[in-house]
Amino acid sequence: MKILVAFKRVIDPDARIKLTADRSGVDTDSVEYKANPFCENALEEALQIAEEHDGEVVLVSAGGPDIDKTIRAGLALGAERAIRVEIEDTVLDSDLAARVFAAVYKEEEPDIFFFGKQAIDSDNNQCGQLVAEYLGLPQACFASEVVIDDDGEVATVTREVDGGLETIALTLPAVITADLRLNTPRFAKLPDIMKAGRKTIDVMDLDDLDIEDTALKIELVSLEEPSARQAGVKVGSIDELVDKLKNEARAL
């Protein structure tokens, strides 16, 4: 069984970020990057399935050589090799990323294509769905449990939906996007960190993949920082609290 995992880097979510002077983006001069947490859940699930079904896990990411560090971190967790599609990651939107991933799918023909349900930088939550659409594959988004049958032909996926849980069965190949409660990602073991440096990262570009439509569908107009948080107030009684919640915050 072959499992492809889309693996994206994001700016360290614990770091304080600031916008560039023209508000066209985030100032990336001295920021640290980490793997997108949902992608880590996707990779962990892929690794567990591969261990159980004797499979191979391949990472795919899009960006310049500076994303190799994040890819190596994924290789240290247990993926066997990786594909990096050479593109400036500042000129990617969800649609172009999805077209890139769909093209890589055609090259690799995996049984499962795992994504994180969304990246925590732009929170778009579109990539997995678009890829499934472009490839005509069944999809299960926001997975909190994935079970693959013994023959490796059907995935039974529990999805976290607004009203509760929904369990669906998909015929493989399929696209699955991971939610946070799907699993707890493992730590990289030291010997695997050492081995990751010797694993292969194949580099492809848009021409190699025959992607015709490279137009961005989303134009970023501007970014705003959130307004500063107002100081809280102390209330003297429960009655006053309820009154404020009703009449000032209008939360009740």
């Binding site: 190596r72 240290a76 990289a188 960190i193 050492m194 990751a196």
Partner: peptide, 15 residues
């Protein structure tokens, strides 16, 4: 090296 950085990140997250 990248290995040292990956080691530090791993131990820090574990910690």
């Amino acid at each position: 090296t990248d290995e040292h950085r990956a080691l530090r990140e791993m131990v820090r997250t574990f910690t």
